[in-house]
Design a protein around this nucleic acid. Structure first.
Lengths: 220, 220
DNA sequence: TCCTCAAAATGACACACTGTCATAATTGAT
DNA sequence: ATCAATTATGACAGTGTGTCATTTTGAGGA
């Protein structure tokens, strides 16, 4: 988490820092962005950076957290609109998020976000045993719980809270995977369209909702 | 890919290099392992390392590839044994692989393998636009195709090759996710058992095979 | 107005790692 | 024994990280 000193900064300096973060994390993935580049971009002395943040990762997750929080709110909106229907909400959410993520003002950042970035426990060096203490990861976990209480379980083949959480995680894993697939395809000879990505996600979601195996009827 | 010079090395030196790789990649994830540490471990001069490999990543994926190739063969065995039943094969495979991965001689390496590591296009800095040229990623893609031809499609709700590939990817994503979940849980207060992991995977697979939504019968 | 002190700012520094390159050693063929 | 090609080697330039002693700032009190 950014240190108190950061939050005491005047708005102009905070904005300059966030703009630099936006710049740099749009340009390259986390591992290729250096503190040196960030301070150069923000025009602040190196020592100051470490007055404000623990390190690169601290800024990254703080910055990413702000963006993600905005988007995630929409998931709850969708969940409310569909009266807790997890699959319907997920479809609506994907269709909104895929455009926000691939064409919104932060698109370039998401291009550089790794699938791993939402799982704590990955960056051994920089976070020690304190991943879970960073607000970003706390938030990710809190969202899981919050969703769980808003979901209508009556139509789901789940036995307990544990299974519901696993199902949620499965859906978000698929979400991330599909977005990742879209981005990777952009670098290849035959890039996917957004419509493609939506269709791919819909198909996958349909498998998870209704099964990838044919029913007896279909087989008969 | 390792350079020709590496393959010309005598067995003793090659073995020492692989042992060092085993050591180092067991100790920490890719990003935290340094060439400096590897050459120290293997007791070869720094210059020599760069005579054999492009960089750290080159060695990593070569090494990982060798391990994975061994394990993947079992997937084909299972697919043959189940006469192309993708879901049955996946279950058998998971039960074998989870033990191999979590308790086998390479367990410590898999602890440090990131979910991303199997997706090319992630390490921007070290592989440029040549990810796909590295044998490891070539192999990963080749396996996808090879599986596709061995799968019995008649029971699956898929329309075309594209969808089959997506289904396969979904299953392997879930595979990786479940293994990852297991490893992460080991670092927490209430670690999962292997039996837990198997059960979790079985449940998830059942959702994908038969649907996470209740059937009309169950609802009625 | 001047003084004091805690908070903030600063950049030089020690340390670590990377990839290269000029040079030296080795090998195999003649 | 000679030569050319291959391989070995470690010093080096370049880049990055996080710290720390020192300086600057600003708010409150005399």
């Amino acid at each position: 988490m950014p240190k108190a000193t950061y939050f005491n900064l005047n708005e102009e300096k905070k904005a300059r820092l966030m703009q630099a973060a936006q710049h740099e994390f749009s340009r390259a993935p986390l591992e290729d962005v250096s503190v040196s580049a960030i301070v150069k971009d923000a025009e602040i002395p190196r020592g100051s950076f470490y007055q404000y943040f623990e390190n690169k990762e601290d800024l990254y997750y703080y910055f990413l957290g702000n963006i993600v929080t905005d988007i995630e709110q929409h998931f709850f909106d969708m969940l409310k609109k569909t009266h807790g229907d997890l699959f319907a909400a997920m479809t609506l959410f994907f269709n909104f998020a895929v455009e926000e993520i691939t064409e919104g003002p932060n698109a370039d950042i998401f291009k550089n976000v790794g699938t791993n970035d939402f799982q704590h426990g990955q960056n051994s060096k920089h976070f020690g045993k304190n991943h879970h203490k960073h607000p970003f990861f706390k938030a990710v976990l809190a969202i899981e719980d919050k969703i769980a209480t808003s979901v209508d379980r009556t139509k789901l083949r789940i036995e307990n809270d544990e299974e519901l959480k696993n199902l949620q995680q499965l859906l978000f894993t698929v979400f991330a995977h599909t977005i990742g697939h879209y981005f990777r395809s952009q670098k290849e000879d035959s890039p996917e369209t957004i419509a493609n990505a939506k269709a791919e996600f819909a198909t996958t979601l349909d498998w998870i909702a209704n099964g990838a195996l044919k029913s007896k009827k279909e087989l008969g």
